[in-house]
Design a protein around this nucleic acid. Structure first.
Lengths: 195, 195
DNA sequence: GTAGTTTTTTATCATTTGATAAATTTTCGA
DNA sequence: TCGAAAATTTATCAAATGATAAAAAACTAC
């Protein structure tokens, strides 16, 4: 439906503007490059081993990015409505990704292809600035996460996660939260029991 | 000494060019904003609690970035000659940093102030692109590190570090390497003993 | 609503890492 | 070169987490 489609595009544009305000002209060109796609709960948005060719904005729903290793799964991050994400290494290198993206709920995303965004970044200084700021945000988050993992035990990280994401906790399974914390689901259950 | 000073500036410029080639004009303006500073082994380049006002390029020497917590120390990263670094959260937010930077060897850095770099990023698209690429590199490194910490035990991460940084290992103390791995120095000694 | 599947909990035992202390080795300045 | 300080190793015991299995609870599909 066209109306809904444009609304979704507007979410993406608003997000970009919130990081770095675009001239109307640039926003218009950007809007032309966006497309909106839906995924059902459980569906893979990006499979491990394929190349991530998009930057995504979540209109609604919830996704996890992570990877499978040996027989365990690890989660890099959850992204909910209003967030922008990609699998950065694959996106930048154009190589197959070790990471996957999966919808944890029915999810609607608006995305832009790397080709299109590269072009916009090259043509418009403001789009490059937006991209810098996007990476800056991601970097600061990751820095923080590394520090926390090094410093704190799983029980503390669990408590921190709950405190900082009270909303998300309701929507994430125990197993996925454990995979985010880097411990087994059984260990997290034990931590919750307080032993 | 002026000659040496210009050589040092050139290292910074070469690094920028390697990420995103600058027009001569831009490189010249950039060069005017650089200054070279030396630190003795053990000296703090940035103290925990102050604001990181620079992006640094290491001409020679070795530094660690990290933080003290309770009674333990943790290291985010080592940077040796040829690397560019800053304390990103503090640099971007202009807030006091939870992280410190310390010289592990006598170190010569060439730096640019945030004020000057912000100005160059605003004036020259190519400088913004350089900054994006710098952040992209940092992001991919951090992504990789998070995945590794989640997935692998300290003994494996130790083996990986040695394999990927055979040069650095010679120059880093066991304690600092343990702080990077997120374990105690005693634990690392035990891992090395192979028990 | 019920059966089957998935998720979560509980329990037990093994492994990894931390805390502490002491011995040993290395480094460094006088 | 000596002696003190710092770094590293070794040892012992405690705490945190993993592996496995089984029970309980929650969720789903029909």
């Amino acid at each position: 439906m066209e109306t809904a489609h444009n609304e979704y595009k507007q979410g993406f544009i608003d997000f970009v503007n919130s990081l770095n305000n675009l001239r109307t002209e640039v926003a218009t060109v950007l809007a032309q490059q966006l497309e909106t796609v839906s995924f059902k709960k459980g569906e893979a948005i990006l499979e491990q081993g394929s190349v991530c060719r998009y930057v995504y904005f979540i209109n609604n729903g919830l996704v996890k990015t992570g990877f499978e290793s040996k027989d365990r799964t690890f989660i890099m991050r959850f992204f909910a409505e209003g967030a922008m994400f990609t699998v950065l290494d694959s996106y930048l290198s154009r190589q197959a990704s070790a990471y996957q993206i999966q919808a944890l709920e029915n999810t609607v995303v608006t995305r832009i292809s790397r080709t299109a965004l590269d072009d916009l970044r090259a043509r418009f200084h403001s789009m490059e600035t937006f991209f810098s700021k996007l990476l800056a945000t991601a970097s600061v988050n990751m820095m923080w996460r590394i520090g926390e993992i090094l410093e704190e035990q799983a029980s503390v990280r669990y408590a921190n996660f709950i405190k900082e994401n009270p909303d998300l906790v309701q929507r994430i399974s125990l197993g996925d939260l454990a995979a985010y914390l880097g411990i087994t689901q059984v260990s997290l259950s034990r931590i919750r029991a307080g032993r």
